[in-house]
């Protein structure tokens, strides 16, 4: 079975974003970019499936600007076998919407014929939480979102999902799209020798036009603004003082 893992290049989760003064967006020039943390978990899971003999090839796919090849090299260094970069923008500030990403991924899936697509639950930049579900819809496949446990069993997968009330386990027909949540695994770090080896692994470069997908956004960004700032609070010296303050405010 082949596993396709879509990985997105996003602002590193440790960086605090700054909204541009003219309200046109956030400033992504010269900030540290990394693989979306959820996608690291997806790559890790795919590699573990391969190590367990349940998968035979792991293909990482990224859609975005040319520099997303660095993200793909990270996936290759972790253990993916091959990578596909689909160039769909030339400015780091152009975000390709989940609908367009899903349409491109659907074409990749048509070509690659994987048994499983493992994607992240959410990209930490746009916070959409949509691409996996959309891809599954376009393909007419089953879906299992927010996975904290994935068991592949022949032509079905048993997936435990993190939901509002706790955990839900479902059984889905393969091929399927699974979106991964934080507790699925702890991604490995790429070792130096593997980083060197990854440089020689195949990385194909395509464009959105090669797949005939129109990436024109459906949502126009009118403006981007700073969230309301909280006014500075005060420090209290003791539990008694805290209780008094809370009572004064009618909070307890």
């Amino acid at each position: 079975m082949k596993v396709v893992v879509p990985v997105k290049r996003v602002i590193d989760y440790n960086v605090k974003v700054r909204v541009k003064a003219d309200g046109s967006g956030v400033d992504l020039a010269n900030v540290k970019m990394s693989m979306n943390p959820f996608d690291e978990i997806a790559v890790e899971e795919a590699i573990r499936l391969k190590e367990a003999g349940k998968a035979d090839e792991v293909v990482a796919v990224s859609i975005g600007i040319k520099q997303a090849q660095e993200t793909l090299r990270t996936a290759l260094a972790m253990g993916a076998d091959r990578a596909i970069l689909v160039v769909a923008a030339d400015d780091v500030h152009t975000d390709i919407e989940p609908l367009a990403v899903a349409k491109i991924l659907a074409k990749v899936v048509e070509e690659e014929q994987p048994g499983l697509v493992l994607c992240g639950k959410q990209a930490i930049d746009n916070d959409m939480n949509a691409t996996g579900q959309m891809l599954s819809a376009i393909l007419g496949w089953s879906q299992a979102t927010f996975a904290s446990e994935v068991g592949i069993d022949g032509d079905s997968a048993v997936v435990t999902r993190e939901v509002d009330g706790g955990l839900q386990t479902i059984k889905v027909k393969m091929p399927t799209v699974v979106s991964v949540d934080l507790r699925l695994n702890e991604p490995r770090y790429a070792s130096l020798p593997n980083i060197m080896k990854a440089k020689k692994k195949p990385l194909d470069e395509k464009t959105a036009a090669d797949y005939g997908v129109d990436v024109t956004p459906r949502l126009t960004v009118v403006k981007t603004s700073e969230p309301a700032e909280r006014a500075a609070g005060e420090m209290v010296g003791s539990v008694d003082e805290l209780v008094a303050k809370l009572k004064e405010k009618g909070a307890v």
Partner: peptide, 23 residues
């Protein structure tokens, strides 16, 4: 925007060929 809706609505949006507005 519960986990149920986040599971269902993007699938619906793609079936309708529209973008999703999350959260």
């Amino acid at each position: 925007a519960t986990t149920d809706a986040k599971n269902v609505l993007p699938r619906l949006a793609a079936l309708l060929d529209v973008m999703m507005l999350t959260d």
